[in-house]
């Protein structure tokens, strides 16, 4: 194990590892067996699994994950460990179990209440931050967090309460003409759905909100609200007090 990972050194450290192994170690720390803390610490569990991966021996990942989950649960019950590992994996299990379908049908919860977010990602820039490469080759096709859509966002209306009442009424009318379904006032969201979810971070403060720029871009892409933008100044005073007309 020491030969494959640490070039045969007895007291091998993180610095002795090769570049690709360092990235694999980061993957291990963040995905397979998350422990919290720095990447520099090599635990025995990580070393063994890394050894399996590097030396092309098949390892049973679900078993490792399950045992790590048991370990984490025991720790949090006995020693007050606050970290909950495998957020995405557990969400996927809930999703596959049909839990989210039930929640979606009940319409009692939205993304804010469920605390929906997406994970960060590793790409070339991460390598640069880890001081493994000198220059980064960035392209537009790189992964973006905003590509991920929430499962709760199937039939999200492209209007919000920020739009003037005229626009809302017109959209509701058009929607009713096209599909025969009415949209109730409560179903219209307060703000425009910007298309991106908050990004998970170890620091709690850095949860990003949907930027107003993104919302503006969405509006600009649709022809109807653009026209009304000019009228907004005139109708703003009405907007506050007037109730939303619904077609029944």
């Amino acid at each position: 194990m020491k030969q494959t990972l640490l070039k045969g050194k007895k007291d091998g450290k993180y610095g002795d590892m090769e570049k690709e192994h360092k990235v694999l170690q980061k993957l291990m720390q963040e995905c397979f067996l998350p422990k919290g803390g720095g990447v520099n610490q090599l635990s025995l569990e990580h070393k063994v699994f890394l050894h399996y991966i590097i030396s092309f021996e098949k390892g049973n990942l679900p078993r490792y994950i399950f045992h790590h989950m048991l370990w984490a649960l025991e720790k949090s019950q006995q020693n007050d460990r606050t970290f909950v590992p495998y957020g995405r994996l557990l969400s996927e299990i809930f999703h596959q179990g049909g839990m989210l379908k039930v929640l979606k049908l009940s319409k009692a919860f939205n993304d804010n209440q469920l605390g929906t977010m997406v994970g960060k990602y590793i790409n070339g820039s991460t390598l640069f931050n880890m001081h493994l490469v000198q220059e980064v080759d960035k392209r537009d096709t790189d992964l973006q967090e905003s590509w991920i859509l929430s499962n709760m966002m199937d039939d999200f209306p492209p209007i919000s309460k920020e739009d003037p009442p005229k626009v809302r009424a017109h959209y509701v009318y058009e929607h009713w003409k096209a599909t025969g379904e009415t949209i109730k006032c409560d179903d219209i969201p307060d703000t425009m759905y910007g298309g991106c979810l908050p990004i998970a971070s170890k620091k709690k403060k850095s949860k990003t909100k949907v930027t107003s720029e993104a919302a503006d871009e969405e509006e600009a892409s649709e022809p109807k609200p653009k026209k009304v933008k000019k009228e907004r100044g005139a109708t703003q005073s009405q907007e506050v007090g007037s109730a939303m007309p619904t077609i029944q």
Binding site: S76, F83, V84, G87, R88, G119, Y121, I122, D142, L143
Partner: peptide
């Protein structure tokens, strides 16, 4: 609790 979310890999 603090949920640790796995990171995506490009």
């Amino acid at each position: 609790f603090a949920v640790q979310v796995e990171i995506l890999v490009d």
